[in-house]
């Protein structure tokens, strides 16, 4: 741990610069690796969105199933499309979708959880029973059912995943918010006449948001898996568009004759999950304040 530890008898005289969360993650060893990796991935996704060496969606059957070479770095798939371009082009879809779903679930969960933890009573009961219902069903099955109603498509996939995922965040946020009315710091703020909304924003929200943030970054991997899984079933990204999970599932058929097809999306998924998990762990380490 590179985090500076407190020693109780030490007078903190050395000026401690205002250290932002990002900076503390950067100081953390695995956090730094994760950040570098994720910046690279986001950069690749951004480039892949506007430019790829070949058209990622245009088939060219004359070039089908070519192994990696100088012209096609990662070879070509069963329709003769350049795998490198497809991996490149799919990055914004896979990473972006996972990010979007997690961010929305995070925000909905934060709002619902804090509201229900603070208000208690009927609001709490109703919200938490709804959460119970959502959590009782396996999230992929629930997403499957929602997609069945909404019909297949990328946007619907995102909606379905958000609807099946937010409840976990709401439950955690509620458990952190409940009973906070008697917390000494909040009680002191209340007694000195600070408004309710300000107390929630300054005392309650930051602590809960970082804990939920850790949970969200650690869930990144399974989210990419879920998107890939649903795309594989034909409910998510529609052909001919590229998506890592969909590419992985298609290449499965040709594994014995064209193993490179399987390897490249697998490594892409691995790297993005790894970077998210490294950041998640670093975030968890640096936000845990050492109590004496």
């Amino acid at each position: 741990m590179l985090l500076r530890l407190t020693r109780p008898n030490e007078q903190p005289t050395a000026s401690a610069p205002a250290r932002s969360l990002l900076r503390r993650v950067w100081r953390h060893k695995s956090g730094r690796i994760g950040l570098i990796l994720s910046i690279l991935l986001v950069l690749l996704a951004a480039i892949g969105y506007v430019w790829t060496p070949y058209d990622p969606d245009l088939p060219n059957f004359a070039l089908a199933m070519k192994p990696p070479s100088g012209t096609h770095l990662l070879g070509t798939d069963e329709m003769g499309r350049d795998v490198f371009s497809r991996i490149f082009n799919a990055a914004h879809r896979s990473i972006g979708a996972a990010f979007l779903v997690l961010a929305c679930s995070f925000l909905i969960g934060l709002f619902v959880g804090i509201l229900s933890g603070l208000m208690g009573g009927l609001v709490d009961t109703l919200m938490m029973r709804l959460v119970d219902i959502v959590m009782a069903l396996p999230s992929l099955v629930l997403a499957f059912a929602i997609l069945g109603i909404l019909g297949p498509g990328f946007k619907n996939l995102l909606v379905a995943l958000i609807l099946s995922d937010w409840a976990w965040y709401a439950r955690l946020a509620r458990s952190l918010a409940i009973g906070s009315g008697t917390r000494p710091d909040i009680l002191t703020a209340k007694m000195s006449g600070i408004s309710f909304s300000r107390i929630v924003l300054t005392h309650l929200l930051p602590g809960i948001a970082t804990k939920l943030g850790v949970m969200a970054t650690l869930a990144f991997g399974s989210m990419i898996g879920a998107i890939s899984g649903l795309s594989f079933l034909g409910l998510g990204v529609q052909p001919p568009h590229a998506e890592w999970g969909a590419m992985l599932s298609q290449s499965r058929l040709y594994f014995d004759i064209a193993p490179w097809l399987l390897l490249s999306p697998a490594i892409a998924i691995l790297l993005s999950v790894l970077s998210a998990n490294l950041i998640g762990h670093a975030l968890r380490d640096v936000t845990e304040v050492k109590k004496q």
Binding site: P184, L187, G193, I194
Partner: peptide
């Protein structure tokens, strides 16, 4: 009426800089 509690660590928002903790009563809505 202002309270003081047993556990000073729990009575302060630990991630805040000291000036912000101390001057918090000045942000009261009245």
């Amino acid at each position: 009426i202002m309270p003081i509690f047993q556990d000073p660590s729990a009575s302060l928002p630990l991630s805040w800089p000291v000036w912000r903790v101390v001057s918090e009563p000045l942000t009261a809505s009245h």
